[in-house]
Design a protein around this nucleic acid. Structure first.
Lengths: 209, 209
DNA sequence: ATCTTTACTGACCAGGTGGTCAGTAAAGGA
DNA sequence: TCCTTTACTGACCACCTGGTCAGTAAAGAT
């Protein structure tokens, strides 16, 4: 499928992929222009389609590469697995925040992929994400200290609630992440983590004995 | 600005507005096609621009009309204002769910307006929403029973947390709302409300004495 | 030196976009 | 009856889209 592309020098590959990623990250799948991509990458129009066949296949290729990089980055989170649910989620969220700040293009790319994507490629995305999403969930439950929870609490529901809050925070800061200066990055990670901690403190009191 | 349009018979106005609203609701601002609108409404292309001037001005006109209808619908929520934060939010959310189900086009239209809108009209939207959003917030604080909260709790932060959860639930069901059958509507309202109640129960225990 | 294969190119295509404006037809005035 | 004004129309415009494919130039084979 992509053998024409994979035959060219790796640094050339990287340059082209970066250009396309930027364009997709900036505008989402549909509004991203292949014309703009070839201009960014400084390659002829025909070459892009010679390498990737179609806009859709280019996009899916980028998704695969991006998921690889995201998974690799997030694997840090598995080095240290606190047994407390909130510690665990806080640890993981912090790494996710770092990813969003260190790799804004990649993060924006994912963000658009999840919310601004046409139905025609939703199913392709699903199959690409689902394995990772499942693994992520499972690693959350593994070795979790369930003894701290109140007796009446449905732990799955509780975790769902925490996820809801986390997603909300991230989407609330999505706009800000775009315009962040590199030197403000660490500060923002701390700010986000603190905000989570604040909310978690309330949630903890609702869920723990 | 819109005097050409407002001179024509009201039922004709309504038909045209409905057609345009549908198209915007289905595809969002940018992907919505003025060609599709005139086809839907069965009017000539020139007429649409004779009435509204440009796609953007048509959109802003629709926004204004839609906000009117939304505010009118939500005003029900002010008839009964429980002093308990969670009762109040639950009551309001239920009405909002009803709105989303009874007026799916309008709801989708808003949904797209808030997340899928180009920067070039973000500021126009801001000015249109902000007054309403502020009023909505204020009515939430008015006459609220603050005595139930734990002493250490920052009430603003607590409310922020509840909003985060509410938004999350609504966005999680946004996809489902599109495909709902009219006779399943009430059922879904109950389901959503129950889900909120479940989460609220946990939050309550975290926030209340 | 000639032929063949491969990698690549960019002018071109059909189809879509928001928007325009000379022209028309009907209503109102003199 | 003629003239003006008003409301409206649709063919047309420039521009943009993803995608194609005949042609080219260089490398390799004989």
């Amino acid at each position: 499928m992509y053998e024409n592309f994979e035959r060219i020098p790796p640094d050339e590959q990287a340059r082209i992929l970066e250009s396309c990623l930027e364009e997709f990250a900036l505008h989402g799948y549909e509004k991203a222009s292949t014309n703009a991509m070839v201009k960014r990458a400084n390659i002829p129009k025909g070459t892009l389609f010679f390498y990737f066949g179609s806009k859709k296949d280019l996009y899916l290729y980028l998704i695969d590469r991006a998921v690889e990089r995201f998974v690799a980055f997030m694997s840090q989170a598995n080095d240290e697995l606190p047994s407390d649910l909130f510690e665990r989620l806080l640890h993981r969220s912090k790494i996710r925040f770092q990813f969003a700040i260190q790799e804004p293009n990649l993060y924006q790319f994912f963000y658009h992929a999840l919310i601004n994507t046409p139905e025609s490629i939703q199913s392709d995305l699903q199959s690409r994400y689902s394995t990772y999403a499942l693994a992520s969930r499972q690693s959350l439950y593994e070795g979790l200290d369930r003894s701290k929870f109140k007796d009446g609490i449905d732990i799955e529901q509780a975790i769902e609630l925490v996820y809801l809050v986390l997603e909300g925070i991230l989407s609330r800061y999505a706009g800000l992440l775009k315009k962040i200066q590199p030197d403000e990055g660490l500060q923002l990670v701390e700010k986000l983590t603190d905000e989570c901690r604040g909310y978690f403190e309330i949630l903890k009191q609702g869920m723990y004995k």
